[in-house]
Amino acid sequence: MQWNSFADFLSMGGYAVYVWSSFGLTILALIWEVAALRLRKSKAIKQIKQADAWAKRRVER
């Protein structure tokens, strides 16, 4: 291991801004993508449920 302390690890040999920005941004982007997809799925299911309820109401009338 090449780090003497946690602070040493965080400083990334003076390149902290570049290294941590790269990894941080990537992690945020992936979390965002998964969250957006979950939202999309629940929206699609909600829409199907609504259409289903509509159709049933029409049959009852």
């Binding site: 291991m1 090449q2 780090w3 990334m12 040999g13 570049y18 290294v19 990894f23 990537t26």
Partner: peptide, 28 residues
Amino acid sequence: GLYIGFFIAPTDFQQGEAYRIIFIHVPA
């Protein structure tokens, strides 16, 4: 992969620690 990239892989003799961006840049 992150563990290997940050704790096992050595420092690059030319680029220092900046090269560690490789572990996300190249796969992407």
